[in-house]
């Protein structure tokens, strides 16, 4: 690696890791259950040490963040999680039906690693669907979905994943990508 690219990487690291550092400090204070100068200082030191020791590629954020739509996204995922939890529970104790599963390929519109990760996380969090394979280069998710009976339900599962991606793009996506799915 050349000297200039290393410098570029270091600059990206400090600026773009600020949200991560802030999150780590908040987590540290939550773990201690107190906000005192001591926990803040040790939190900052430990956050810096952790991000240095376990280096991750810098996450490319779009620079656009809408707290309201992010809250809507989180709320939607939590509600879906609660509803689907009971659906899967009923499926487990209910009569043995001839339900089958499906492995659905979902081609996401985004090109961002961050949106891809967020969508995969949300999909895997809702019971009844889990991301089995990810193609990062072309942002494709392969989602295993429980209890699918017809082709129409396959399409419904696909639309559901795309809907989650759309909601996440509304909150975090770059302006260009949000415009692209807005229609």
């Amino acid at each position: 690696m050349t000297e200039s690219s290393r410098a570029a990487r270091a600059r990206i690291t400090i600026r773009q890791q600020l949200p991560l550092l802030a999150a780590l400090v908040v987590l540290w204070m939550l773990l201690w259950g107190s906000i005192t100068p001591l926990t803040i200082v040790t939190g900052v030191v430990i956050a810096l040490a952790v991000t240095r020791a376990f280096y991750l590629p810098a996450v490319e954020l779009s620079g656009r963040f809408d707290p309201f739509w992010f809250a809507v996204f989180v709320g939607r995922v939590l509600v879906e999680m609660a509803v689907a939890s009971f659906q899967v529970a009923l499926l487990a104790i209910g009569p043995r039906s001839r339900h089958r599963s499906a492995l659905v390929k979902v081609d996401l519109t985004t090109r961002s690693d961050f949106i891809l990760t967020g969508t995969a996380l949300a999909v895997s969090l809702v019971p009844g669907s889990v991301v089995v394979e990810v193609d990062r280069a072309s942002t494709v998710l392969y989602v295993h979905t429980l209890s699918v009976r017809t082709e129409a339900e396959v399409e419904k599962a696909r639309a559901h994943v795309l809907g989650l991606e759309r909601d996440l793009l509304r909150a975090w996506g770059s302006r260009a990508e949000w415009e692209a799915v807005r229609s």
């Binding site: 999680m81 009971f86 899967v88 487990a92 009844g128 669907s129 295993h144």
Partner: peptide
């Protein structure tokens, strides 16, 4: 096993 995976853990997060 892949179906069993759905029944596990995730409903328990709720």
């Amino acid at each position: 096993p892949l179906s069993r995976l759905h029944a596990a853990t995730k409903p328990q997060i709720l």
